[in-house]
């Protein structure tokens, strides 16, 4: 009978490393915006991604410690949402929308062009760690379909040809920051509406730089 006890080895935490003082200070500012510390879990998870390039166990443990919940509870949140990347993600995350509006206007072809040009299939990253590719559900740009995002910065009215150019530009130019206005000028087409205000914030990694929400992905953001 199966009487041999099954032992669970308790491994040491993945990394004992703590965040930089700057990140910890930033975490404290984010937490101060909420009446309950644990409400800050989601923005802090982006901070954790910015710290390690992806969401590591160490990052989740740090978030848990900061907001006073268990790492298991942090993992429950982090694993529910697709934008928290727990796998290695490239410097540039290209997300092509294949939901209905984009699909009807050629979104599938745009996505295929990105896959072929980059050689990276859905959900994967190139060997160099430069580009990750994914198709995603609606990103709220139906008026400017088909739409593509790089590091969650939006481009509207993308064609397969422009999509290939976008991939080559990222591979060759390797821009330090990703700016939506700049990409729209070079690779975009018909826009849903005139954005009027220039988007100053630029993304610096595969995590969003939503200024009003104090997420962490950008430069030039106020808090």
């Amino acid at each position: 009978m199966g009487s041999e006890p099954i032992t669970l080895t308790i491994r040491p935490a993945e990394s004992g490393k703590k965040w930089s003082d700057e990140s910890l200070e930033r975490a404290r500012r984010i937490m101060a915006r909420y009446p309950e510390k644990r409400s800050a879990v989601m923005p802090l998870l982006y901070l954790a991604m910015a710290e390690d390039g992806r969401l590591t166990n160490g990052g989740m443990e740090q978030v848990a410690e900061l907001v006073g919940i268990t790492p298991a509870q942090v993992l429950a949140v982090a694993s529910f949402y697709t934008m928290y990347k727990r796998e290695r993600t490239g410097k540039y995350l290209i997300s092509a929308c294949t939901s209905i509006s984009c699909m009807l206007t050629g979104g599938d072809d745009v996505f295929e062009a990105i896959e072929l040009e980059s050689g990276v299939p859905h959900g994967e990253t190139d060997e160099e760690g430069l580009i990750s590719v994914e198709h995603v559900e609606c990103i709220g740009a139906c008026g400017g379909a088909p739409a593509v995002q790089v590091n969650y910065e939006l481009i509207e009215g993308v064609t397969p040809v422009k999509a290939r150019e976008l991939v080559r530009w990222l591979q060759q130019e390797r821009p330090a920051t990703i700016n939506t206005d700049e990409m729209q000028r070079h690779f975009g087409g018909r826009r849903s509406f005139d954005w009027a205000v220039a988007e100053e914030a630029s993304a610096v990694g595969p995590y969003p730089a939503f200024q009003p929400f104090g997420t962490v992905g950008g430069v030039g953001e106020g808090e």
Binding site: R11, A13, E14, E61, T70, P71, L75
Partner: peptide, 8 residues
Amino acid sequence: ISIFPNQP
């Protein structure tokens, strides 16, 4: 159902 990887 899951535990956190190194926390039983």
